[in-house]
């Protein structure tokens, strides 16, 4: 075989001809494509494939069917679980965003004034972030323990206040779970907001001061508009993260009492690992993916055009 015959076949590998100076990108992209395909795409494809079957963890080959979709999406408990997921996600995202922003503002302000304790504040918040979800759940379970020796209720009693049914009252338990999740996730929002605050051009504040803007006006007309892209990106990230949270809930309440704190991710986990229903779990995973993508698109539509590009 002549060299001329070989050359065109090898060109896709980046073997440039004498006059072709532009190397092919494929050899450089192949490792990434392979890794992404193997570790990210293949499992996703498998989940879609399982969703169209009746596979269980108990054995058997399974058959292709659409009945799993119909069965899962018409379950009477699904609506309640989606509602619980919405409340948990909305509460957590709003809480993490607001407190994270407030903490970042305090840290930046304190740094400007060279106040003592800013590093301690940042480090303390970050400690909560690095605590694994299961451990965080156990810590909060001890704090919320409603026994006479429970953490928070003992403090309330010391202050002469009535104990709270943190985990046994269906109307309170969701907010206890949100509180524990906000505690854990706020540090991430703080770090994102802190970085974005540091990137704001100081001349904008100088101009606002020249115009006689008050601190409140500077916050609403300079800081927040400048933070908008960071806030939206942070919202996307923490929404997806919160939708996938189940480790902290499983160790704190197990989804109970009843189904009061059973979010979609925990329900999916239960369906797969307690009902052994792999196909139904796959359908629920696709539902979670659709919800996450839908919310991400909604957030992204609010991004300024130039940031999107």
């Amino acid at each position: 075989m002549s060299a001329r015959a070989v050359r065109p076949k090898l060109s896709f590998l980046g073997v440039a001809g004498r006059h072709n100076r532009v190397p092919s990108p494929y050899p450089w992209l192949m490792p990434v494509i392979l890794v992404m395909g193997l570790f990210y795409l293949y499992p996703v494809v498998d989940v879609f494939r399982y969703a169209f079957t009746d596979l269980t963890l108990l054995g058997g080959e399974g058959h292709y069917t659409l009945s799993t979709f119909a069965n899962v999406l018409t379950r009477p408990e699904l609506l309640q679980i989606v509602w619980v997921t919405f409340v948990f996600t909305a509460g957590s995202v709003v809480g993490q965003q607001l407190i994270g922003l407030a903490m970042a503002l305090v840290v930046v302000r304190a740094e400007k004034r060279h106040l003592f304790g800013t590093t301690i504040l940042r480090t303390t918040a970050l400690i909560a972030w690095v605590v694994p979800g299961i451990a965080g759940g156990i810590i909060w379970k001890m704090l919320f323990n409603e026994a006479p020796f429970g953490g928070l209720n003992s403090l309330l009693r010391l202050m002469g206040m009535a104990p709270v049914q943190w985990l046994s009252d269906p109307d309170v338990v969701m907010w206890s779970v949100v509180l524990s999740n906000v505690w854990r996730g706020t540090a991430f929002s703080m770090v994102v907001m802190y970085a974005a605050l540091k990137a704001i051009d100081p001349s904008l504040y100088e101009a606002a001061e020249v115009d006689g803007a008050s601190a409140r006006q500077k916050l609403f007309f300079v800081t927040l508009p400048q933070l908008r892209p960071a806030i939206l990106v942070n919202m996307i990230l923490i929404t997806i993260q919160t939708l996938n949270t189940f480790d902290a809930i499983i160790s704190l309440t197990g989804g109970g009492p009843g189904r009061a704190t059973e979010v979609l991710s925990l329900y999916t986990f239960n369906v797969v690992f307690r009902n052994y229903d792999l196909a139904a779990g796959s359908v629920l995973s696709i539902l979670m993916l659709v919800i996450s993508l839908g919310l991400a698109l909604v957030y992204a539509s609010f991004l300024p055009k130039d940031e999107k590009a």
Partner: peptide, 23 residues
């Protein structure tokens, strides 16, 4: 039997609803 884990799961959910007065 294979269905026992789900029976147990449903009894746990039921017990939570009943003992909290939610149902």
């Amino acid at each position: 039997v294979l269905i026992y884990p789900e029976i147990s799961n449903q009894i746990q959910i039921m017990m939570g609803k009943v003992l909290t007065g939610a149902a």
